[in-house]
């Protein structure tokens, strides 16, 4: 039973950031902008979030410090995403290349900046006092309480909330539906009075905010210092997005599936059955990536990708 609790907690560490960041990607891509730069948004805003944690240390106590840092990371995420927005919405840039530029920029700048800040060392330390031993009431539920409501982080609940809210926004509100129209057929949307550029900007701002928070959410439970990497989570989130076919509920399943693979990859030595297989650790570590490819190959027949995704919007086109 202890084993199950341990795996469940571990699972949440991977699941939440993947879910949040792929939701961030969903906003961008449903509006018609391919967002390959999720990784850079995570790396970049994670640094600002961690710096904010350091600044607030001793000023604000407890969970409030984390929440403020999350908000700050979100705002910085918007800043970076705006670079993508300007280039791809106003300047008709190749969105994939812009994203590659961001992916080169973020880690390099963060190393540069961290070293300038602390004279040589690039590791930013994090003082982590955010662990919640037990959530009142919910923590007393048998099994589930033990799995999800003890020794947990507030980011887990924020992440789930973000998912639920964004699922409602995208699927049920006027804003969300119009945004999706911009991703499917922008010319048609424009002809009905939807300002495509404005909606795409809005979508990217939301995407940047969520992605930025996702960056900090990734690092809080798993690391004691920040070292300019998020372990390829941005790219993984992208595959989750494709695997989840850009739809909210499948996205949840895809994120859970990936997180499970990732959990197995990291905790396999503690699971006797897997440890006895005698496979190299490289196999388990690359398992999520291999499974992604297999899953994508199996599901690629059903392509629900937004139709106008990746193309610069040209009003005069039909």
């Amino acid at each position: 039973m202890e084993m199950l609790y341990f795996i469940a907690r571990y699972f949440m560490y991977f699941f939440i950031p993947l879910l949040v960041v792929s939701v961030s990607g969903m906003f961008s891509e449903r509006s018609g902008i391919i967002h390959m730069g999720l990784d850079s948004v995570m790396v970049w805003s994670c640094m600002w979030g961690v710096l904010c944690l350091q600044w607030l240390d001793g000023v604000v106590a407890g969970q409030l410090r984390l929440i403020l840092a999350l908000l700050f990371a979100g705002v910085m995420g918007i800043l970076l995403t705006l670079l993508l927005a300007v280039a791809s919405i106003n300047l008709n840039a190749d969105q994939t290349i812009v994203a590659m530029a961001l992916n080169t920029f973020a880690p390099a700048f963060c190393i540069f900046f961290a070293r300038v800040l602390q004279d040589g060392s690039e590791h930013l330390s994090i003082r982590n006092d955010f662990l919640i031993e037990k959530v009142p009431v919910l923590g007393d539920i048998p099994v589930i309480g033990e799995m999800f409501f003890t020794r947990t982080y507030i980011t887990n609940f924020i992440g789930i909330a973000i998912f639920i809210i964004s699922a409602i926004v995208i699927n049920k509100t006027r804003f969300g539906l119009r945004m999706c129209a911009c991703g499917e057929n922008p010319q048609a949307a424009e002809s009905l009075g939807v300002n495509v550029q404005k909606y795409r900007y809005a979508a990217l701002i939301i995407s940047g905010f969520i992605g930025g928070m996702g960056g900090l959410m990734y690092i809080i439970p798993v690391a004691t210092h920040y070292s300019q990497t998020v372990g390829g989570y941005g790219y993984l989130a992208l595959s989750v997005l494709i695997f989840g076919q850009w739809r909210s509920i499948p996205l949840l399943g895809a994120a859970a599936f990936f997180a499970l693979c990732k959990t197995i990859a990291n905790a396999y030595s503690g699971i006797p059955f897997l440890a006895n297989l005698g496979l190299p650790s490289a196999f388990f570590k690359s398992l999520p990536f291999i499974i992604t490819l297999v899953a994508l190959a199996a599901t690629s027949k059903y392509d629900h990708s937004p139709k106008a995704s990746g193309q610069p919007y040209d009003k005069s086109q039909r």
Binding site: A87, A93, A101, L102, F105, A108, I111, R115
Partner: peptide, 19 residues
């Protein structure tokens, strides 16, 4: 300074090359 400044330049160049 750090040599990462080169990567920063590179990224800016790619960014501008994109449009």
């Amino acid at each position: 300074f750090q040599r990462e400044i080169v990567s920063v330049i590179t990224s800016v160049i790619i960014y501008f090359a994109a449009f």
